[in-house]
Every structure is written in C-alpha cells, then in structure tokens.
Amino acid sequence: MFDRKLNMDSIFHEKQEGSLCAQHCLNNLLQGEYFTPVDLSSIAHQLDEEERMRMAEGGMASEEYRTFLQQPSGNMDDSGFFSIQVISNALRVWGLELILFNSREYQSLMINPINEKAFICNYKEHWFTIRKLGQQWFNLNSLLTGPELISDTYLALFLAQLQQEGYSIFVIRGNLPECEAEHILGIMRVQQQQRPRLIGEDEAQTSAGMSAALSQTEMVFGVEDEVVDEDEELKKALAISRQDIDVEDEEADLRRAIQLSMQGAVMSNKSSESEMGNVKSGSQAAGSAAGGQKGGQNEALTAEELRKRRQAYFDRQQQQAQPNIPQPDTKSSDGSGSVNTGSEEDQQQKPSQ
C-alpha cells in the first residue's frame, strides 16, 4: 500500500526564487534540475547574437542597426526574465516543441486537453507549468507552496479561465524525460486533502499567526504581571496588618500584666487590714490611677517606662508601710505571738532591719 502523501512528495516542484520563473517552469516540466540561470543566459546571448547578425545584413552603418545595438536584450533582463524564444530553444534540446493552445490551427484539431501531456502558461513575464503525471494533472506553479491536483473535469475550465485572464498557453509536444513521479503515480492515484496556498499568502498567514501568538503571549504575561502585582500588594497589606495586630497585642498584654500586678498587691494588703490600712488606701489610689491609665495616654508607654513606674509604686508602698511595722516583742491583737507583716511580695521589698 503506497502512502498518498509520499506519492505527492515524489513530484519535483521548484519554488519561486527572485524572477527565475522561466527556470522553475522548465525544471518543473522536466521534473528535475535540468536548467540553471547560466544555461538560460547562454541561450539568450546566443539568440541576441543571431539577431544582431541578421540586422547587420542590412548594413552596419544603417540607422536600424545602430538603434538595435542601443536597445537592451529582448531575450533576457537583469531580473532573471527569459523570453519564449529562450524557453523554446531550451526545450528543443530535449526534442520538445511548443504549440500555441488558442491558435486557429490547434483549435481546429478539436483535441481534448486531457489527452495532452503538458502546458506552459505565461502572463506578464511569469511562467508556470501544468503537467500530467501518471493519470492525473497537476498545477506546478512555482508561486505555490506545493503541487496542486487538478481533476480532468476542472482542467478545461482552468485553461479557459487562464485564457480569459490574459494568459498565453502553449501545448508541449514530444516525449518528456522519464521521472520518478511518473512511475509512482502511474501505479496509484493520489488525493489532496488541502490545496496549496500562494507563497506570499502562506508567509502572510505565518506572520499573522506569529503576531497573534505574540500578542496573546503579551496579554497572558500582562495578566500574570497584574496578578503578581495584586498578590504583592495583598501580601504587603497583610504584613502591615499583622504588625499592627502584634503591636496592639503587646500593648494589651502589658496593660493586663500591670493590672494583674496591681490587683495582686491590693489582695495582699487586704490580708493585713489592721496593720496596713494606709497601704490599702494607697494601693486603691494607685489602682485607680492605673485604671485611668488603661484607656489614656499611657497605652503608648514602653515596657521600660512601665517597669520604672511599677518599681516607684512599690517603693512608695514600702515607705508607707514601714511606720506601722510592729516590733518583734510586740504581740498581735489576737494574742498568737505571731506578727503579720503583709504579703510575701511586701516582705521581699522591705529592707532588712
């Protein structure tokens, strides 16, 4: 079983380079790299020399001859264009002949185009080949990205369309050289799922596709950048929020610690009301002051300032308590012989007697 794609790939198809369409036309017709620009230039120069010699027969001093020498070559130009005479002479090497398709002589033969072997078409200095390979026809225009399959039914319509557009069509007569595509396509017919495009159209679509892909990529990267920016802003906001929360938590913890410390001092003093009455009142006054500070300006005090204030409070507490401390030989009012000197914290704060 033959691969239909490989069968199409077996067809020689030279694509357009510069203005060398005459070279591409001949090579696509012969299915091989038979001619180069140098070969066709040599044929063109030979034709120019033959024309010059014919003009010289009328006299080298004639006005016609001098005018001919001043005119550029009619068989080739610097762009790579070659005339029908150059193509005809090149094909004559292979024993091939050109016949004008729409001439009265050929049309009178009433030959069905599908019974021919090949056609060469020209319009505004562009040449291309239509050739039968195996039992199928192909448009081998060098401006296409690949060979284009033409059905037998469409061939006559295609040639009529070309004529209407101003093309000159030539029928190829003679035995074309053997080629690989002729052998392969003679065994099996091919099918073409997608017709080739013009080379310029294909490049334009490729460029448009690349531009669209680039634009899409820029849009995607733009969206990603926006998302990244939003994420960064959110992270910064969360970090600032956490810092605020941490500061508030530290201040709240410090206020609670001071309040508990004051409450602890008050509770200790309650156990010795009879001996530390003035301490209790001082303690309550300090507690009231601390309570006022909770919602006031001291919320912003540093830990070191708060520590100093606590120390000052306990120092005042010691000074107020010292005059009421009983002597060791004095008994308490309950007669137990023990002396209640206040809380353990107060004991630690008192200097040794």
Rank of each mutant, 00 (worst) to 15 (best):
S333K: 03
A61Y: 14
D229Q: 14
Q348R: 14
Q353H: 09
S103E: 08
R104E: 07
I245R: 10
Y123T: 02
S336E: 04
P323S: 01
E97I: 11
S108C: 09
S274I: 04
L157Y: 12
P323A: 04
F158W: 11
P196D: 02
A156V: 12
R309M: 06
E51G: 02
W94D: 04
A181F: 10
G295W: 08
C25A: 15
Q70P: 05
G146M: 07
A213V: 06
L185H: 07
K270S: 07
V220K: 10
A160K: 15
S62K: 08
F12S: 03
L306I: 14
G291F: 10
Q327N: 12
E182T: 03
E63L: 14
Q284N: 09
R316H: 08
F35L: 10
I114L: 07
E218Q: 14
A61Q: 11
G277V: 12
N28I: 02
R131P: 00
S41N: 10
G95L: 03
M8F: 13
Q191C: 09
S41F: 13
N269T: 08
T67N: 10
K15M: 13
N278K: 13
N269P: 01
I130H: 00
S41V: 05
L96W: 02
G174C: 04
L47T: 01
F128R: 00
Q135I: 11
L234P: 05
L162I: 01
R316T: 08
Q311D: 13
V220L: 04
E232M: 09
T67W: 15
S333Y: 12
I187F: 15
L306E: 06
D346I: 08
Q322I: 14
K117T: 02
R131V: 11
F170P: 00
L155I: 07
A290K: 07
W94S: 00
S338N: 14
A61N: 15
A44P: 03
D225L: 13
Q293T: 00
G277D: 04
E203I: 11
T302F: 09
Q31A: 03
A312S: 13
R131F: 11
A90S: 09
V266I: 15
A285I: 07
Y65F: 15
R310D: 00
S261H: 12
D329C: 11
Q71S: 06
